[in-house]
Amino acid sequence: MKFVIEYTKQSDRQSIMDSHSHMALIEEHNTTQGNFLIFSDNYEEDTKQIIYVSVPEEEFGSLKQENTLLKAQSQANSDRADFHEEVLAEIILAINP
Results as ranks from 00 to 15, higher is better:
V53G: 00
F60T: 06
Q14F: 06
A94V: 04
Q73R: 14
E6G: 06
K64Y: 00
P56W: 03
N96R: 01
R13K: 15
K64L: 03
E66S: 01
E57V: 12
Q65E: 14
D12K: 15
D79F: 07
F60W: 14
M17W: 07
P56M: 04
N67Y: 03
Q14M: 12
E28S: 07
V87T: 03
T8W: 10
N42Y: 06
S74G: 11
E86T: 13
T8L: 04
E6V: 04
I50H: 10
H22E: 14
F36W: 15
Q33I: 07
T68A: 09
V55K: 03
D41E: 11
E58D: 08
Y43T: 09
N77Q: 15
T47Q: 02
Q75M: 12
R13W: 01
L88N: 08
A89L: 10
G34F: 01
L25R: 12
F83Q: 12
Q14N: 15
A76P: 03
E90S: 15
S40F: 06
D12M: 02
K71L: 07
I38E: 07
E27C: 03
K71E: 13
L25I: 12
M23N: 07
N35M: 13
I91E: 10
E90A: 13
K71T: 04
I50G: 01
N96Q: 08
L69A: 14
N96T: 01
S19H: 11
S54D: 06
Y43G: 03
A76G: 05
M17G: 02
R13D: 09
S21K: 13
E86W: 10
Q10V: 10
Q10D: 15
S54A: 07
V53R: 08
L69H: 13
L93H: 03
E45V: 11
N42H: 12
I95L: 14
I92Y: 00
E66M: 03
N42T: 10
I50S: 06
S15L: 13
T8Y: 07
H22K: 08
M1F: 07
V55D: 00
T32P: 00
I5D: 07
Q10N: 03
Q14A: 06
S19L: 11
L69W: 10
A94L: 07
A89Y: 02
L93F: 00
Q65Y: 00
L37S: 11
I26A: 12
V4G: 02
A72Y: 00
L63R: 02
E90G: 06
E66F: 01
R80H: 12
D18I: 15
N30H: 14
I91L: 10
I26N: 09
